[in-house]
Design a protein around this nucleic acid. Structure first.
Lengths: 237, 237
DNA sequence: TGTACATCAGTGAACGCGCGTTCACTGATGTAC
DNA sequence: TGTACATCAGTGAACGCGCGTTCACTGATGTAC
């Protein structure tokens, strides 16, 4: 029965399920998602390879569980990084740095959720919720900064009707009440943030950049100007 | 002998090598890099699986060839997209759109070069040259715009010494003569461009954005403001 | 409290598959005299 | 031009491996009377 008092069996089942996911996460961290094998996981756990099928109907479902875990892990870090008060610009910087730090500490998990899709794997809808936690932490800050008048002289590009429709949808979901040109700039900062992290993690800066943290900090400064969090630059003429 | 007149044998060897790469590229386009198999390639070509070893010492070398091909393919498109004249802002937009179009047409090749690294594969140094063609097309435009006075009132963030060192290195390689704050903003636009494309291709916009082209165009507009190509926004106070 | 039955976690063997790579070989192409 | 030899592209069998998934089963845990 759903929601009934858990029996010993139910508790045991949840526990073993957790152990399987934990071991899979461990192997993911070492080898990366494409190399993740059910057999290797069960081998490490000392159980028969066929036993996983009591817990996951197929390999893809284990991967889904790992994706949800990764989104939640980052989402939690992001939510915790948003300090309760202080200037919005500082909170934005801290949030961006926390996201990068998580990515550096969990490169394969980052690749799992923000990297190339796994061939043949189709992410089910249930991953959308956990996925949005991090995004909402970022957009929530923008909303708050806007409402408290901390967005100063942000450039306002005109929007075509098609762009206004798209940006409007984003605004409804994540930044209600914020003018569309500002929402568009927040989206730009969002892509810039993850673009920067992906470049660093996926080796695009290799051979050129020696101190990625310094470059990242500089890029965060630009992001802040793009969103309007940083006065003195990116202002309207 | 290196550089000697090619014998029939040499020509035949180069031709078969080309056919192997072509078939591998075809399979890459369908299945993606992780699923690429030497046996499948040779099977399709009607040759014994062991025959590839006359052309590539190992699977990784085939992948390297595909990476170089992909970088060159995109690089060529990027270079061709830079129109000889017209306002820099229009040329920048055209270039960005050309890069996105290529990515949409070659999603697996895009993932191969800009997506998660292939586990166990280490890209050799020889990929750096082809990789920089696209980057140089972008940075070249910024240099030109700067030299012809087409960068208007771009915000200039201060740089920490560490950031100045990093950005300075980038400037020396790709944007000599351009002031460091502008170079930093160009780097930001660069990460934003590929961040936006990766989000679209890797499914991060799924379930929210219905018309990615419209959002992309809007983001390009923001990029232009970030670099200073677009007057009227992103100006200094 | 005790017994009969149902549930179900976990086993172990098997299926069928594909992979990268090695190796001794054959036979056509090229080279030297 | 003709012959003897060297080169080397391509073959086919084999090695050794790991994978996801199925299936009939055993035996412990839980349920109903």
């Amino acid at each position: 029965m759903e929601g009934a008092i858990p029996t010993a069996r139910m508790r045991a089942k949840a526990e073993v399920r957790g152990e399987i996911i934990a071991e899979a996460r461990r192997q993911l961290a070492i080898e990366g998602a494409p190399a993740l094998s059910l057999r290797a996981v069960t081998r490490q756990l000392g159980m028969a390879s066929s036993a996983v099928y009591r817990y996951f109907p197929a390999r893809d479902d284990l991967i889904t569980a790992l994706i949800v875990e990764a989104y939640d892990s980052l989402g939690e870090v992001a939510e915790a990084a948003v300090t309760p008060d202080g200037p919005a610009v500082d909170r934005w910087g801290a949030l961006c740095r926390a996201i990068r730090t998580w990515a550096l500490e969990h490169p394969h998990e980052y690749a799992l959720i923000y990297g190339s899709p796994i061939p043949g794997y189709q992410a089910p809808e249930l991953t959308i919720g956990p996925a949005s936690r991090t995004t909402l932490a970022l957009s929530g800050l923008v909303v708050e900064a806007f409402e408290t008048g901390q967005l100063v002289g942000v450039g306002e590009e005109e929007l075509t009707p098609a762009a206004a429709a798209e940006v409007g949808r984003v605004a409804d979901l994540a930044m209600p009440g914020v003018p569309l040109p500002i929402v568009a700039r927040a989206v730009a900062a969002w892509t810039q943030l993850f673009g920067q992290i992906s470049f660093e993690l996926f080796g695009q800066l290799q051979g050129v950049v020696e101190d990625p943290a310094a470059l990242f900090d500089q890029s965060v400064t630009v992001m802040e100007a793009v969103v309007g969090l940083r006065p003195g630059s990116s202002n309207r003429a």
